[in-house]
Design a protein around this nucleic acid. Structure first.
Lengths: 158, 158
DNA sequence: CTCCTGTTGTTCAAATTCGAACCAAGGTGT
DNA sequence: ACACCTTGGTTCGAATTTGAACAACAGGAG
């Protein structure tokens, strides 16, 4: 049998991949955060909320659904939607099919904010990540991390 | 000439890679955070501090150097080191070559904490990321994100 | 219909994070 | 030696984030 007492440590390649992932992730978030805040007065989280809403059928999504897409906690989303509401970029509606439900809805001003913020954001993502990778690396990232996400998604391990 | 007014949006593959990266990153952090907290009472940040220290020559590093390795703010590190100090896992020393300098130093108890926490952490990283990827994807990740990190590292864009 | 269980979104307190301001000390040029 | 600019860490206040506790409601079994 294998030996659970002696864990399988990461070899050099594996460690490089893991460190690269962690470091790149932190570094990227840092830069994107700064750029968005300076350029549009939005946090990365807020920007992503707006983007997900603008991609949704009616510019609106259920809170829970939105939280899942963002991979954030429900309470965190409640907070941010309130912030965006104060800024006039998002509004709350009650859900037609469920009295408890709340739909976050993009306002015209919100739509305009995305339109204004997107180009700079995309350009930076391209400059810092996309254009740095070869076509093969990009494909590997998409497939590999897609699979990683898929396996992680449905799980709700207590 | 190219048109900076019409930004180059991300095509399907590029978007998949970017979304995969963001989602996998959030999902992974979430899971690792929970596992470490439950298993060892440490946050991911705290765990990483301990790991970097235990890998350092004398189990100690300058605050600034440590902050750079962790890709975090100086003030954030100050806070976390103080927390770890209260837990008895890390101590502060003054730097011999620079009176201003502060060295964060792993205590015996801290070294023991890493030894105890590492197996479970590594196992989860392996299960959720490393073992999900093919050897090619892993190599692509290591090289690609390594390059991304390298380009991001030295920059201090004002 | 009624009870029971699972959802939904919010509220709350606690922990964390960041950037700006700050003080102390290094290093340099004159 | 002196003024000056950079570094190293900490402190401070403001903004976020999270999980647990809650209250209102949905959905189904009996």
């Amino acid at each position: 049998m294998s030996s659970p007492n002696e864990p399988r440590w990461l070899d050099q390649d594996e460690m490089a991949a893991w460190r690269g992932f962690v470091v790149a992730s932190n570094l990227l978030n840092r830069r994107l955060e700064r750029q968005l805040k300076e350029d549009s007065g939005l946090s990365h989280t807020q920007y992503e909320i707006l983007v997900h809403l603008s991609a949704a059928p009616a510019g609106s999504l259920r809170m829970t659904e939105l939280a899942e897409k963002l991979v954030t906690s429900k309470s965190g989303l409640t907070y941010q939607v309130t912030q965006l509401e104060r800024m006039g970029l998002v509004g709350r509606r009650s859900c037609p099919s469920d009295v408890r439900g709340v739909m976050a809805e993009l306002t015209d001003q919100g739509r305009e904010a995305v339109r204004q913020a997107a180009p700079g954001h995309v350009a930076l993502v391209r400059e810092l990540l996309i254009d740095v990778l070869t076509r093969e690396q990009l494909a590997a990232l998409a497939e590999g991390l897609g699979e990683v996400s898929a396996r992680l998604r449905p799980d709700d391990v207590p």
